[in-house]
Design a protein around this nucleic acid. Sequence first.
DNA 1: CTCTATGCAAATAATTTGCAAGCAC
DNA 2: GTGCTTGCAAATTATTTGCATAGAG
Lengths: 138, 138
Amino acid sequence: MGHSLLASFQRDGRRVTRPRKAILAVLERTRHPMSVSEIHTSLTRGKIAVDLVTVYRTLSVFKQLGMVSRVEFQEGQFRYELCQGRAHHHHIRCRGCGHIADLMLCPLKKVLAMVERETRFLVEDHSLEFIGWCPQCR
Amino acid sequence: MGHSLLASFQRDGRRVTRPRKAILAVLERTRHPMSVSEIHTSLTRGKIAVDLVTVYRTLSVFKQLGMVSRVEFQEGQFRYELCQGRAHHHHIRCRGCGHIADLMLCPLKKVLAMVERETRFLVEDHSLEFIGWCPQCR
DNA sequence: CTCTATGCAAATAATTTGCAAGCAC
DNA sequence: GTGCTTGCAAATTATTTGCATAGAG
């Protein structure tokens, strides 16, 4: 095994399989949120045959277990990145080259209580993404 | 004409047509961001025959002219709402019933400069949506 | 009359579902 | 061996594109 994430995975009654290990490996070696097709392409390039549908299903399971978080940038598709102990954070994506950078902060901590008070909703989640131009493209 | 939005529309060399008037009317009488299919269904219910593709194309034009803004709530689809003089704002959507409420604030004004400084990106846009449970569903 | 906008068909793209066979444990 | 997983085919859903015709100005 040798992998803490897969260990907790197994504890959950799930099975550790070749596709799951491979998808996890791709996510681990990439430091930005990846789309499903990017992950699949990466696997294919690495001569690892995993069906696209399996990538979808695996990410769905990873998400249920809280192993990955899902983000979107008004692209019409979702992206996934490993949580693995990283603090809650947000991103900025370049309109030009598509490069995604992390923001090491979440400026919303203080806002949540205000939102709940104003709307009477119980806030469960939020999405915050920035779009702009990176140093190379601006 | 009798419609300031369509007036500015016409000034742009665009044509004022039955489908465009109808779609605008739907957006005006609805106070939350609508999906394309919701708009189309609303037209159909009102006995107004407009092709779904026309709804897509019309919203695309409205967006280019800055008449509508596009938002998404991790649903796998986009929603549109009229800007018409309304201040920039964000939303919260209920996991239970799908109800969307406006937030009358954007807590990010002060954050933008910090994001630009931290990332060296030029920030052009941002999306911020909350997801939770409304008073009825919580 | 000219040129944009629309409807209809069809293509793309993202994601989901059904089911028999494969494989982790 | 048992039941969760996978691959493959096919269905769904969201969105876009091509093209001939309709209609706004």
